[in-house]
Amino acid sequence: MKRLIVAALAAIGIAAGGMAQAEDFTPAVVFDMGGKFDKSFNEAAFNGAEKFAADTGIQYRDFEVTNPSMREQALRNMARRGAQVVVAMGFAQAAAVETVAQEFPETKFTLIDMVVDLPNVQSVIFKEHEGSFLVGMAAAMASQTGKVGFVGGMDIPLIRKFALGYVEGAQHVNPDIEIFQNMTGTTPSAWNDPTKGGELARSQFDRGADVVYAAAGGTGIGVYQAAKDAGKLAIGVDSNQNYIHPGTMLTSMVKRVDVAVYESFRAAKDGTWQGGIQILGLAEDGVGWALDEHNRSLVSAEMEAAIEQARTDIIAGNIAVTDYMAQ
């Protein structure tokens, strides 16, 4: 009898333990140095994670790194403290993910913007050049002067990828178009320097540009403000930023990092999470251009038709957009 009770208790204990584990699902996200409120890349991930928390009631852990050696430490901490899935934001975390994913083969890692080839790593990369191509077309068609501008954050491959797609899109509409390109700086502060962004935009306006595309994180805010002050047009990036200045925001190149984060959490919770590489372009709605009530009046039916046509052509492979990384 006594033995039976012990066995029954043990069974209950095991069952309870199993249930507790199922309920203890903890997803985690490690933001990169930009910080989670950068109004752009990292904030998109934050929004995705928040949406997941609101939809499911499951709390997630997060961490913002402040120096490069913290990346590995943060990922390891997340894995050790029982996070089942850890989203690592940004290409800079690739090396850290590679190390930590080998130490914790049971933990799932989702890396945004870079590829690490391990069974427990899901790599999500975006075809920013395709989205940039479309907004480049929009810029060229909206421009009266035949001159458009680009303000990047730092001169790194990722930003060149944005710039190249933008240039090709603009030239697709108008082969003679003149395109000014400026980078904000050489230090991480380049991602959060609205003052300098505004200066660069103004200098491009002075040289005759009337549409400017910013791919520079928080620096973009200054670019959009400068466009508003000068009565010119600006194009947002990463998130849909059309609402910031309705009337002078021509459109935004949206990159659905929020969806990628949300999907990673959801799939891990449902048990459908898989390692491997996901490449999200126009076809997958991973990137795109934003058309809503804030910029409706700026985009003519003709422009919309041309951009949608190009979108279809890129998906079908009739227009080839050069990927700076694949060169």
Partner: peptide, 16 residues
């Protein structure tokens, strides 16, 4: 930044 983006970068990757 110049050296890492133009010269020392491991080819075919995002990170400088």
């Amino acid at each position: 930044t110049y050296l890492l983006v133009e010269i020392f970068i491991k080819p075919g990757q995002q990170a400088a």
